[in-house]
Computed example of a mutant assay.
Amino acid sequence: MEKITKISIDMMGGDFGPEVTVKGLNHAFKKLENVQANLFGNENDINSVLKKYPSLIPKVRIHHTETFVPMDAKPTDAVRRIGKESSMWLSIDSCAKKESDVVLSAGNTGALMALSKIILRTIDNIERPAITALWPNPNGDSVVLDLGANIDVSSNQLVQFGIMGYAYAICVLKKENPKIAILNIGHEDTKGSNDLQEASERLSLIFKNNFIGFVEGDDLSKGTSDVIITDGFTGNVALKTAEGIAQLMAYYTFNTLKSSLAGKLGMFIAQNSFRSLKNKIDPRGNNGGFFLGLNGLVVKSHGGTDFIGFASAIEFSINLARSEISEKIRDLIGDNI
């Protein structure tokens, strides 16, 4: 019999709390087998929604707490003022105690990162964890890191990001021979800061032909590389810019077609194709940023997502827990750092 995979969920995180997290959990668990959930939050609030889904009740265990981390809380407040009784802290601690295999929260990103670093700590020889997410391209998905956890990074930290991203591509994306690149302002070896050039030299020694050098912003969506590494400032700006452009293009496309009778007729004829396009660009399908480099698996869902997006994050979390990514990172770091 396959091992039961246990997910720990901060039920009070996000903009909508249990109304979305419970409904999303029910939606995800209909598709998943051999799963259980440890739910951390206000028992009354959780049960008021959970009673709508009786088939879900045997698969969950509620851990009551009335304390939670507000979406606008400072990371220092989450640690010092709100403390160890919050739903976020307890859900992470469940992973640290090996009572859960992976943690999921739609709560405050800064607080989640701060608590995760304190409770789980980083893998040996990893200086800082990185926020990782999937970036769609014509060939499937690439993994991009960092997306906001580290504004300034050294060449050594970029090398660590490269190793962690490589492990992610193998274990989660199932890439047999993943290519790695550094995001820069040009492809030439002379472009970019000293840290970028030093990281490039070291990664070329570690990964040989798997390291393809520097890529530019337009390469992110081309699928030029399976792993793209950058500092958190650049990565976050790139991510938010891409999201904004996708929304703008969707707006232009559908409003232009709706502006004429011929366009409306075309939309009707091609409605299945437009439905497929909508599914491809729907951000809910890739809802789940992973904190890579910790002694435990932590996934961050978008705070404003609906139950479909949260269900997607749950599925991602379970698949992540069933991979061997932490072991792969430890092996690669031990061999190369």
Rank of each mutant, 00 (worst) to 15 (best):
E99S: 13
E99V: 07
S100W: 05
D101P: 02
V102I: 14
V103N: 15
V103L: 14
L104G: 14
S105C: 03
A106P: 15
A106C: 04
G107R: 14
N108R: 09
N108T: 10
N108H: 08
T109W: 04
G110N: 08
G110P: 03
A111C: 14
L112N: 01
L112C: 05
M113F: 10
L115K: 05
K117G: 00
I118Y: 10
I118R: 09
L120N: 09
R121F: 04
T122V: 02
T122S: 06
I123N: 07
D124L: 09
I126C: 04
P129N: 08
A130E: 12
A130M: 12
T132E: 08
T132W: 10
A133E: 00
L134D: 02
L134S: 08
W135C: 14
P136W: 07
N137P: 13
N137L: 15
N137R: 13
P138L: 12
P138Y: 06
G140N: 12
D141E: 10
S142M: 01
S142Y: 02
V143K: 00
V143P: 00
V144E: 03
V144S: 06
L145N: 05
L145R: 05
L145M: 08
D146G: 11
L147R: 01
L147F: 09
A149D: 11
N150S: 06
I151Y: 02
D152H: 13
D152P: 12
D152F: 10
S154K: 15
S154R: 14
S155A: 14
S155Y: 07
N156E: 14
L158Q: 04
V159P: 02
I163E: 01
I163K: 05
M164Q: 02
G165M: 01
G165D: 01
G165W: 03
A167T: 09
Y168T: 03
A169I: 10
A169E: 03
C171N: 15
C171E: 15
K174L: 12
K174I: 11
K174A: 10
K175W: 11
E176P: 00
N177P: 09
P178Q: 07
P178T: 15
I180L: 15
I180Y: 10
I182Q: 00
I182D: 00
L183V: 14
I185G: 07
I185L: 14
G186L: 14
G192P: 15
G192Q: 12
G192M: 10
S193K: 06
N194W: 00
N194E: 12
D195R: 10
L196K: 03
Q197H: 00
Q197W: 00
Q197L: 02
A199R: 11
A199Y: 04
E201I: 12
E201S: 13
E201P: 01
R202F: 01
L203W: 04
I206H: 04
F207G: 06
K208S: 11
K208C: 06
